[in-house]
Design a protein around this nucleic acid. Structure first.
Lengths: 215, 215
DNA sequence: ACCTGAACACCGTTCAAGT
DNA sequence: ACCTGAACACCGTTCAAGT
């Protein structure tokens, strides 16, 4: 064990401190939650001084961006799996939503880093931006498939995907951090299922014309 | 001015430090954003020592809860105004949503305190819980009115309101802190309008049966 | 080229002491 | 009863100095 520690420590000088810090950060949020992720704690866990991370990350936000990017990759991988499952395009679309919710519940702390205020401008982190965009694109594709099969109404798939994302993220966020946690006893799955169902059906009464609404 | 300061300071000893700290907190987030709200900064602004707030708030979370509660009151007041406006129940429902979005945009920092992770359990702050619940109830009432007028489909109004809240909060949150800010150039209003429209119409193609969906 | 040690300016929180 | 002063254990960040 001490030998392994020494060996690992030597490799830090060969360029692996960056990935070691990312791993430490992931371990920290998984074990102790979002707030436990500090630059100093990550450095401690990686066995380096508090100043060392600044050789590899400009500031704390840069570390958070790396953590968030990794989260989007993991989320996208799960969603890709769900999209490739058996069933109709609509069933696969629902499976994709279920996978999103499952990820959020299983990795709340990671989800918070991905959607929280730690990274204030995705534009400053191109690879994070790309990872988030790729994740979103999976949603767009799933919706487009449903439209091709006549299971989802016509309309800009990207706009519809935005609505779906907002709705799903909204219920997750209200449940995880917001007032909803105190206002309903239902577990997230049940809640998300009901919300997804409502979103699919819409609010309009069947007697109301379903064309473009007037101002 | 010094006289006023002295007078004010004297009143702290008569029970007004609590409200002075709340005012200071509100001023801080409005002027410098959510992160500027620290217990020490609030104390400084109120002209007392850093330890003084602990006479009135158990900890930082308790101050945040008071700030959040005030936010829900303000939001509810605006929504009540919108709900009382002229027009059909559906138009008033839309106005209520627009007012929600307007509040979020005009008071982002305050909105973040209301929905962020500063207060982790609304159940521990009964008056905050009540204020949030009252705000939510305005949504439920607006939906119930639309149902009575045959403009929104039948269904548990509270469940539908949850969907509406999740969707609206979701778009606001993705816009304010999330990846959406980097992925669309549209201002929040336009985005929210489109999302609200989609939510009203639903996703289902008209050929798809609109009864209870199968698993 | 990469890391350490020490420092600075902040936090939240506690507690004895003042009035 | 209410507030202050001083302290403790943390932060993020910087910078001279080491190897």
């Amino acid at each position: 064990m001490p030998a392994r520690t020494r060996a690992r420590r030597r490799t830090y000088h060969h360029g692996s401190l960056k990935s070691a810090l990312l791993e430490a950060a992931l371990a920290l949020i998984a074990a102790e939650g979002t707030d436990a992720l500090t630059l100093r704690a990550a450095a401690r866990r990686a066995g380096v001084s508090q100043a060392a991370p600044y050789r590899h990350f400009a500031d704390k936000e840069a570390l958070l961006a790396a953590v968030a990017e990794e989260g989007y990759r993991q989320l996208a991988a799960g969603m890709r799996r769900a999209a490739a499952a058996e069933g109709s395009s609509l069933e696969r679309f629902r499976g994709l939503g279920a996978e999103y919710v499952r990820f959020a519940r299983a990795h709340v702390a990671h989800y918070r880093v991905m959607f929280g205020r730690g990274v204030t401008d995705f534009g400053r982190y191109p690879s994070l931006h790309a990872a988030a965009e790729a994740t979103f694109q999976l949603l767009v594709d799933a919706i487009a498939r449903c439209q091709r099969d006549g299971l989802v109404r016509a309309g800009d798939a990207r706009a519809l995907a935005t609505t779906v994302w907002a709705t799903t993220h909204g219920v997750v966020d209200l449940w995880a951090d917001g007032p909803l946690s105190g206002m309903t006893a239902e577990p997230l799955d049940v809640l998300a299922e009901a919300v997804g169902h409502d979103m699919f059906l819409g609010l309009a009464a069947s007697s109301v014309p379903r064309g473009p609404t007037s101002t």
